[in-house]
Design a protein around this nucleic acid. Sequence first.
DNA 1: ACCTTCAAAATTGAATTAAATATTTTGTAT
DNA 2: ATACAAAATATTTAATTCAATTTTGAAGGT
Lengths: 231, 231
Amino acid sequence: MFGQPTPSHSPSAAASPIDRSTLHSQLVGTLRDMIVEVRLAPGERIDEKTLCEAFGVSRTPLREALKVLASEGLVELPPNRSARTTPITPEGVEELFEVISWLDLNGAKAAADKATADDIKHLRTLHQRMLRLHDARERTEYFRLNREFHAGIVDLAGNSVLSAVYGGLMAQAQRARYVAIQSQAHWDRGIEEHERILAALEEGDGDEAGRLLFEHVRETGHRVARSLSAG
Amino acid sequence: MFGQPTPSHSPSAAASPIDRSTLHSQLVGTLRDMIVEVRLAPGERIDEKTLCEAFGVSRTPLREALKVLASEGLVELPPNRSARTTPITPEGVEELFEVISWLDLNGAKAAADKATADDIKHLRTLHQRMLRLHDARERTEYFRLNREFHAGIVDLAGNSVLSAVYGGLMAQAQRARYVAIQSQAHWDRGIEEHERILAALEEGDGDEAGRLLFEHVRETGHRVARSLSAG
DNA sequence: ACCTTCAAAATTGAATTAAATATTTTGTAT
DNA sequence: ATACAAAATATTTAATTCAATTTTGAAGGT
């Protein structure tokens, strides 16, 4: 049905768990992935007719999908003008990561209280897979797991509202990371920070894990924003 | 065009600032207000045909509007089944207010740093108007200003992502408050808490304002959730 | 009497068509 | 030659039409 195989997006993202069968919901998923992975460039004009032909669907479900993505902040819909993917600005990225860092800070605290040993173990497994991807320099797949790692921690808080909001913001953050150039040094440092966060969680120290996560996310935000200013 | 005069919703809610002219965007605004003010009951079935006739529009813009509201969490759209307003549960309310309290906590800290004397003064004016509404027992209008008060503080942080997320969550919170029964004692107490928050802001003590706001919101959440369990 | 099965009605999903709005092109006048 | 205006074109918005799915109700069997 679709030109490219639908890339499954993170199962932990509670953004749209319902309604996976209808045409427009499939379009939402596919388009979201395309925008997040910057296969549609930021600020790029979205031509309805072209996309319809590419997907082999009519404009009705496509327009419905665009409305949803607009309310998620991935698309802009000026009245009577073409849809565009939202531009990415350094200021916007700073704001985005600031909010995410707050959710991480408090989410991790709540998560530490509720997490079982198995939960933490799962995160450790995830981390080890990320280490291998880091060694193999597989950036795209690492990004995917990185999102799973962060969402995984937040999900442990057992707050579905939090998970939903977090998922939406992380989609935008992921997109910013795709356009930013990540240096090897920054990548190395990120790995170390994950290691420390994980250690704090394993010791049941939610406050420390939250603080570390907060700093980690904030730092990442600064780096991404700087990379955008420079590039 | 519409059956009832479009109730203007809070200008500070950055949820959908764009696209105010098209039919579907008007529908989003009107329907959102109807759901928030519980003129459409939680869990109530939304019949497309009925609403279309009531508004005098065709199904296309209405369905687009419902998609947006679904992604905002105010509507549920099971595939091939009727749309429903999302039910309100005590658990959901607790989760909702928990996330809001975190945003308030951190938002207030950031706000205190950036707020000018005029900004604070505006909040004080708002508070005084709320005092009068409290004396006059005007619950609905008080609710509206209460939302403006909280959003006003958060907006001072100057973070548009925060304002947008906060606006969306506050819409849901407002809805929960409409269905909950607020006792006079709780209302009185809320006023006092606002007074203390305002005092902290006027002294430039963002940390204290944040802490007080956090407690205030969390308490409100508990009260609303309890009221739902009881009623 | 109750449960299952089948058919009709109703409702949702998607495509098509028509109307309104913006954009571009072309011509004319200064 | 440039600037403005008007017409033509293209694009978006909304209504209508068609198709697919679910629900409802009744009939027949256990």
